[in-house]
Design a protein around this nucleic acid. Structure first.
Lengths: 239, 239
DNA sequence: CGCCTATTTGATCTGATTCAAACAATGTGG
DNA sequence: CCACATTGTTTGAATCAGATCAAATAGGCG
């Protein structure tokens, strides 16, 4: 999963692929809605998501929740903990997940042995930040309708990139309350906006399954331009 | 400036400091409100801010602006362009700025010769992302009053960290319209909220100068917890 | 002085919240 | 296989934080 993702950015040498495969993984299953890493923790491992959906979030003093990102297989949602000792937010599962824990030390050694792999990991964290920026635009400057359409596009495209869509459909385990917490909206308003999107013939969304009826329509509704995902192989460093 | 900043995280060896000093810099002055790097560009240099204030932003399809971050001396606002070829947003000056351009190639070589410096730079980009997350909370889940107080705290603390405050005062060249674009508010509402903050005896803000009258009060009003800035020396990698 | 940009004020409107309750789907244990 | 609990979705009505529009005021500066 991880190798596939890194390779999609730039090809790996024999030695690099070997070194990645040699990483010591400790695989665990974690139930739905459980916390993997908590704000304030000082973890010594990173978490590679193999199966399932997860999210990162933080709570306001008033107990309101802001979700920063949704994560799908292939992601390392807390890769940042490699260089930022203290977690400033939490990571939790949404569905039942299979995750692999990798010691910081092993990753650090890997980046020393294979600097190009190190760059690729650095790059992952930069794409992460790019998503944050895009979400900020949504929350700060776009209407609820547009925001939600945009999120649907983003998740769909990211799932597509790791082969987890079939045709115009994908799994959608994210509740309306979670969408609200991600986009700074109330559950009620999310519900009404979703109905609008359905009414406009853009999507079907029920029973944990998203069906995109008009991709171009949804894309326009969400002002979605995938540049910020930096999916293409435009990665290579100047070096 | 850059050396001071990196050293504040972890001490540098003689060789490391030497290598940083050897970076080829091309220093320029750039007038206020000018674009340094534009969305869509594929720069081959990074920009180290030496003097002045800058910001990163992106425009909505409807022409609304979302500012993602404000930058102060010592920052490398577009360090990400080292690994993400295409700019997905723009970088512009707020005041007259002195900036130093450094070729990607030199930075990449530096990270190869001095992996610990590379880690420190990676870390900088991770702190950057941490600020985005904190801004997301504000925009998504906090009131205008709280959001603005939080921003005042953040900028003040960051200026303090690079020695650009004097007592409880600092320079404040950011207009109310810019605050609005950063926090997802209208200028009018920013103005009224600022008046509230003044009325509550927390700040004085006029003539490009911010005076913090009650630090604890402002901190509370903004629900400000500086953990997310990762300023302390809790940096060292597992390696 | 006169121009330009930033701040302030007033009045009005609206997108989104809140509160409350009904409804649907799914699972659980007896 | 049904009663019951649980969790998620939907609907309605009232309310509000913040937007919008429009115009006045205040600084700074060539």
């Amino acid at each position: 999963m991880l190798i596939r993702k890194l390779r999609s950015i730039s090809p790996l040498s024999q030695d690099e692929e070997q070194s990645i495969r040699a990483l010591p993984l400790s695989v665990k299953e974690i139930g739905a809605d459980e916390i993997i890493v908590r704000e304030g923790d000082r973890p010594f491992v990173c978490c590679l998501l193999i199966e399932g959906f997860a999210c990162r979030y933080k709570l306001t003093d008033q107990g309101k929740r802001q979700i920063f990102s949704f994560h799908t297989p292939g992601d390392i949602p807390d890769l940042q903990s490699l260089h930022l000792r203290t977690m400033d937010h939490s990571l939790a599962t949404i569905t039942l997940c299979k995750v692999a824990f990798i010691p910081h030390e092993s990753i650090a050694n890997l980046t020393r042995r294979c600097p190009r792999v190190g760059d690729a990991l650095w790059r992952e964290t930069l794409v992460d930040a790019a998503l944050f920026r895009e979400w900020m635009i949504g929350i700060g400057r776009r209407s609820a309708y547009t925001r939600i359409a945009h999120l649907l596009c983003e998740v769909f495209v990211r799932l597509q990139a790791v082969g987890l869509t079939s045709g115009n459909q994908c799994e959608w385990p994210i509740t309306q309350a979670e969408i609200g917490d991600a986009l700074g909206l109330s559950t009620v308003h999310v519900n009404r906006s979703l109905q609008e999107l359905r009414g406009d013939g853009l999507i079907e969304l029920a029973g944990g399954c998203l069906k995109v009826l008009t991709w171009n329509g949804l894309k326009e509704a969400g002002e979605f331009d995938p540049t910020y995902l930096h999916l293409s192989g435009e990665a290579e460093t100047a070096a």
